[in-house]
Protein backbone atom coordinates (compact mmCIF):
# COMPACT_ATOMS: atom_id res chain seq x y z
CA UNK A 1 0.00 0.00 0.00
CA UNK A 2 2.85 2.36 0.82
CA UNK A 3 4.36 1.77 -2.55
CA UNK A 4 1.15 2.69 -4.29
CA UNK A 5 0.68 5.74 -2.10
CA UNK A 6 4.23 6.86 -2.74
CA UNK A 7 3.82 6.36 -6.45
CA UNK A 8 0.46 8.03 -6.92
CA UNK A 9 0.85 10.82 -4.40
CA UNK A 10 4.56 11.69 -4.72
CA UNK A 11 6.15 10.25 -7.87
CA UNK A 12 3.22 10.88 -10.19
CA UNK A 13 2.83 14.55 -9.24
CA UNK A 14 6.48 15.31 -9.86
CA UNK A 15 6.52 13.34 -13.10
CA UNK A 16 3.36 15.12 -14.24
CA UNK A 17 4.68 18.55 -13.36
CA UNK A 18 7.94 17.89 -15.21
CA UNK A 19 6.17 16.63 -18.33
CA UNK A 20 3.72 19.50 -18.16
CA UNK A 21 6.40 22.17 -17.93
CA UNK A 22 8.84 20.76 -20.47
CA UNK A 23 6.15 19.62 -22.88
CA UNK A 24 4.22 22.88 -22.82
CA UNK A 25 7.27 25.06 -23.25
CA UNK A 26 8.53 22.86 -26.06
CA UNK A 27 5.20 22.88 -27.85
CA UNK A 28 4.70 26.60 -27.43
CA UNK A 29 8.13 27.52 -28.67
CA UNK A 30 8.57 25.05 -31.51
CA UNK A 31 5.08 23.95 -32.52
CA UNK A 32 3.29 27.25 -32.37
CA UNK A 33 1.08 26.55 -35.34
CA UNK A 34 -0.47 23.67 -33.41
CA UNK A 35 -1.48 25.89 -30.52
CA UNK A 36 -5.19 26.22 -31.17
CA UNK A 37 -8.50 25.54 -29.49
CA UNK A 38 -9.37 23.53 -32.65
CA UNK A 39 -12.96 24.68 -32.52
CA UNK A 40 -15.33 22.47 -34.47
CA UNK A 41 -18.26 24.88 -34.29
CA UNK A 42 -17.84 25.60 -37.98
CA UNK A 43 -18.71 21.98 -38.84
CA UNK A 44 -21.49 21.53 -36.29
CA UNK A 45 -22.93 24.66 -34.74
CA UNK A 46 -26.07 23.63 -32.88
CA UNK A 47 -25.34 20.75 -30.51
CA UNK A 48 -22.07 22.41 -29.50
CA UNK A 49 -23.98 25.01 -27.50
CA UNK A 50 -25.37 22.40 -25.09
CA UNK A 51 -21.92 20.92 -24.56
CA UNK A 52 -19.35 23.65 -24.77
CA UNK A 53 -21.11 26.33 -22.76
CA UNK A 54 -22.10 24.31 -19.64
CA UNK A 55 -18.77 22.48 -19.68
CA UNK A 56 -16.57 25.55 -19.96
CA UNK A 57 -18.37 27.71 -17.41
CA UNK A 58 -18.55 24.70 -15.09
CA UNK A 59 -14.90 23.91 -15.39
CA UNK A 60 -13.87 27.54 -14.92
CA UNK A 61 -15.74 27.86 -11.63
CA UNK A 62 -14.69 24.44 -10.37
CA UNK A 63 -11.05 25.07 -11.29
CA UNK A 64 -10.91 28.46 -9.62
CA UNK A 65 -12.75 27.00 -6.63
CA UNK A 66 -9.94 24.48 -6.17
CA UNK A 67 -7.33 27.16 -6.78
CA UNK A 68 -8.79 29.51 -4.16
CA UNK A 69 -8.97 26.70 -1.63
CA UNK A 70 -5.31 25.98 -2.32
CA UNK A 71 -4.11 29.59 -2.26
CA UNK A 72 -6.33 31.00 0.49
CA UNK A 73 -7.42 28.08 2.71
CA UNK A 74 -7.96 30.44 5.63
CA UNK A 75 -10.51 32.53 3.81
CA UNK A 76 -12.44 29.43 2.72
CA UNK A 77 -12.55 28.14 6.28
CA UNK A 78 -13.63 31.55 7.53
CA UNK A 79 -16.42 31.64 4.95
CA UNK A 80 -17.49 28.13 5.93
CA UNK A 81 -17.70 28.99 9.62
CA UNK A 82 -21.41 29.69 9.18
CA UNK A 83 -23.45 26.65 8.06
CA UNK A 84 -25.61 28.71 5.68
CA UNK A 85 -22.61 30.09 3.84
CA UNK A 86 -21.07 26.61 3.72
CA UNK A 87 -24.24 25.26 2.18
CA UNK A 88 -24.33 28.04 -0.41
CA UNK A 89 -20.72 27.37 -1.37
CA UNK A 90 -21.11 23.60 -1.56
CA UNK A 91 -24.35 23.69 -3.50
CA UNK A 92 -23.01 26.26 -5.97
CA UNK A 93 -19.86 24.24 -6.52
CA UNK A 94 -21.92 21.06 -6.97
CA UNK A 95 -24.16 22.74 -9.53
CA UNK A 96 -21.15 23.84 -11.53
CA UNK A 97 -19.78 20.30 -11.28
CA UNK A 98 -23.04 18.93 -12.64
CA UNK A 99 -22.99 21.53 -15.40
CA UNK A 100 -19.50 20.38 -16.30
CA UNK A 101 -20.55 16.74 -16.43
CA UNK A 102 -23.66 17.46 -18.50
CA UNK A 103 -21.58 19.53 -20.89
CA UNK A 104 -18.98 16.81 -21.18
CA UNK A 105 -21.56 14.13 -21.93
CA UNK A 106 -23.15 16.34 -24.57
CA UNK A 107 -19.77 17.01 -26.10
CA UNK A 108 -18.91 13.31 -26.24
CA UNK A 109 -22.27 12.41 -27.78
CA UNK A 110 -21.92 15.23 -30.29
CA UNK A 111 -18.41 14.31 -31.29
CA UNK A 112 -19.09 10.62 -31.84
CA UNK A 113 -22.50 10.87 -33.50
CA UNK A 114 -21.78 13.68 -35.96
CA UNK A 115 -20.25 12.30 -39.12
CA UNK A 116 -18.60 15.58 -40.04
CA UNK A 117 -16.59 15.63 -36.85
CA UNK A 118 -14.78 12.35 -37.42
CA UNK A 119 -12.03 13.87 -39.59
CA UNK A 120 -11.23 16.38 -36.85
CA UNK A 121 -11.31 13.88 -33.99
CA UNK A 122 -8.12 12.16 -32.84
CA UNK A 123 -7.12 9.66 -30.19
CA UNK A 124 -6.04 12.31 -27.74
CA UNK A 125 -9.56 13.74 -27.78
CA UNK A 126 -10.90 10.37 -26.64
CA UNK A 127 -8.31 10.12 -23.87
CA UNK A 128 -9.12 13.65 -22.71
CA UNK A 129 -12.85 12.87 -22.66
CA UNK A 130 -12.35 9.66 -20.66
CA UNK A 131 -10.04 11.30 -18.14
CA UNK A 132 -12.25 14.35 -17.71
CA UNK A 133 -15.35 12.25 -17.21
CA UNK A 134 -13.62 10.06 -14.61
CA UNK A 135 -12.30 13.16 -12.90
CA UNK A 136 -15.66 14.94 -12.89
CA UNK A 137 -17.61 11.92 -11.69
CA UNK A 138 -15.05 11.30 -8.95
CA UNK A 139 -15.25 14.93 -7.92
CA UNK A 140 -19.05 14.87 -7.73
CA UNK A 141 -18.99 11.55 -5.89
CA UNK A 142 -16.60 12.97 -3.31
CA UNK A 143 -18.60 16.16 -2.92
CA UNK A 144 -21.77 14.14 -2.32
CA UNK A 145 -20.39 11.41 -0.07
CA UNK A 146 -17.59 13.03 1.92
CA UNK A 147 -18.97 16.31 3.19
CA UNK A 148 -17.97 19.04 3.31
CA UNK A 149 -15.23 19.04 0.75
CA UNK A 150 -14.50 22.73 0.77
CA UNK A 151 -13.61 22.54 4.44
CA UNK A 152 -11.49 19.41 4.54
CA UNK A 153 -9.77 20.36 1.27
CA UNK A 154 -8.47 23.46 2.99
CA UNK A 155 -7.21 21.56 6.00
CA UNK A 156 -5.99 18.33 4.37
CA UNK A 157 -5.23 18.82 0.71
CA UNK A 158 -3.85 22.35 0.79
CA UNK A 159 -0.96 21.32 3.07
CA UNK A 160 -0.33 18.26 0.88
CA UNK A 161 -0.24 20.29 -2.35
CA UNK A 162 1.85 22.92 -0.61
CA UNK A 163 4.33 20.22 0.44
CA UNK A 164 4.52 19.00 -3.15
CA UNK A 165 5.21 22.45 -4.53
CA UNK A 166 7.85 23.17 -1.90
CA UNK A 167 9.63 19.89 -2.72
CA UNK A 168 9.02 18.51 0.74
CA UNK A 169 6.27 15.95 0.08
CA UNK A 170 4.24 14.94 3.09
CA UNK A 171 1.53 12.35 2.48
CA UNK A 172 0.85 11.13 5.97
CA UNK A 173 -2.57 12.72 6.14
CA UNK A 174 -3.52 12.26 2.50
CA UNK A 175 -2.64 8.56 2.40
CA UNK A 176 -5.37 7.93 4.97
CA UNK A 177 -8.09 9.42 2.77
CA UNK A 178 -10.62 7.11 1.04
CA UNK A 179 -9.75 5.82 -2.41
CA UNK A 180 -12.08 8.06 -4.47
CA UNK A 181 -10.21 11.08 -3.15
CA UNK A 182 -6.89 9.49 -4.08
CA UNK A 183 -8.28 8.70 -7.51
CA UNK A 184 -9.28 12.33 -7.87
CA UNK A 185 -5.79 13.51 -6.89
CA UNK A 186 -4.02 11.05 -9.18
CA UNK A 187 -6.46 11.86 -11.98
CA UNK A 188 -5.61 15.52 -11.74
CA UNK A 189 -1.93 14.80 -12.17
CA UNK A 190 -2.52 12.38 -15.02
CA UNK A 191 -4.46 15.11 -16.84
CA UNK A 192 -1.62 17.49 -16.12
CA UNK A 193 0.88 15.07 -17.62
CA UNK A 194 -0.98 14.64 -20.91
CA UNK A 195 -1.88 18.31 -21.01
CA UNK A 196 0.85 19.45 -23.44
CA UNK A 197 -0.09 16.78 -25.96
CA UNK A 198 -3.76 17.64 -26.22
CA UNK A 199 -5.97 20.51 -27.29
CA UNK A 200 -6.20 21.48 -23.62
CA UNK A 201 -3.22 23.79 -24.20
CA UNK A 202 -5.64 26.40 -25.49
CA UNK A 203 -6.49 27.37 -21.93
CA UNK A 204 -2.93 28.65 -21.50
CA UNK A 205 -3.42 31.17 -24.27
CA UNK A 206 -6.73 32.55 -23.05
CA UNK A 207 -6.67 36.00 -24.68
CA UNK A 208 -7.07 38.21 -21.63
CA UNK A 209 -4.74 40.69 -23.33
CA UNK A 210 -7.72 41.54 -25.54
CA UNK A 211 -9.28 43.40 -22.63
CA UNK A 212 -6.75 46.22 -22.69
CA UNK A 213 -5.28 46.26 -26.16
CA UNK A 214 -6.53 48.84 -28.66
CA UNK A 215 -8.93 47.48 -31.25
CA UNK A 216 -6.82 48.22 -34.30
CA UNK A 217 -3.32 46.87 -34.82
CA UNK A 218 -0.99 48.26 -37.47
CA UNK A 219 2.60 47.05 -37.68
CA UNK A 220 5.66 48.27 -39.53
CA UNK A 221 8.89 46.46 -40.20
CA UNK A 222 10.90 49.49 -39.19
CA UNK A 223 10.24 52.34 -36.86
CA UNK A 224 8.55 54.43 -39.50
CA UNK A 225 9.03 57.77 -37.77
CA UNK A 226 12.78 57.27 -37.64
CA UNK A 227 13.47 55.27 -40.76
CA UNK A 228 13.54 58.36 -43.01
CA UNK A 229 14.74 60.89 -40.47
CA UNK A 230 17.96 62.68 -41.33
CA UNK A 231 19.00 62.57 -37.70
CA UNK A 232 19.38 58.79 -37.90
CA UNK A 233 21.29 58.27 -41.13
CA UNK A 234 22.64 54.95 -42.34
CA UNK A 235 24.02 53.33 -39.26
CA UNK A 236 24.89 49.90 -37.98
CA UNK A 237 21.42 49.38 -36.52
CA UNK A 238 18.33 50.33 -38.46
CA UNK A 239 15.58 51.85 -36.29
CA UNK A 240 13.61 48.75 -35.48
CA UNK A 241 9.96 48.70 -34.70
CA UNK A 242 9.30 48.01 -31.06
Amino acid sequence: MDYLNNFFLIALPYLALAIFLIGTIFRYTSRKFQFSSLSSQFLEGRKLFYGSVPFHWGVIFVFFGHLIAFLFPGSVLAWNSQPLRLMILEITAFIFGISMLVGLINLVIRRYTTARLSPVTNKMDLIVYVLLIIQTVAGLWIAYNFRWGSSWFSTLLTPYLYSIFTFNPDITAVSLLPWPVKLHIAGAFVILSIFPFTRLVHMLVLPLNYLWRPYQQVTWYWNRKKVRSSSTPWSLQRPENT
Binding site: N209, Y210, R213, Y215, Q216, Q217, V218, T219, W220, Y221
Partner: peptide, 17 residues
Protein backbone atom coordinates in the same frame (compact mmCIF):
# COMPACT_ATOMS: atom_id res chain seq x y z
CA UNK B 1 -11.08 46.40 -40.18
CA UNK B 2 -13.62 44.65 -37.98
CA UNK B 3 -11.67 41.38 -38.16
CA UNK B 4 -8.58 42.98 -36.60
CA UNK B 5 -10.66 44.59 -33.90
CA UNK B 6 -12.50 41.37 -33.08
CA UNK B 7 -9.52 39.02 -32.80
CA UNK B 8 -9.09 38.16 -29.11
CA UNK B 9 -5.59 36.77 -29.72
CA UNK B 10 -4.44 39.81 -31.65
CA UNK B 11 -3.41 37.53 -34.50
CA UNK B 12 -4.76 39.83 -37.23
CA UNK B 13 -2.90 42.98 -38.13
CA UNK B 14 -2.66 45.56 -40.86
CA UNK B 15 0.70 46.07 -42.47
CA UNK B 16 1.76 49.68 -42.16
CA UNK B 17 3.74 49.78 -45.39
Amino acid sequence: PACVASCPSGAIYKRGE
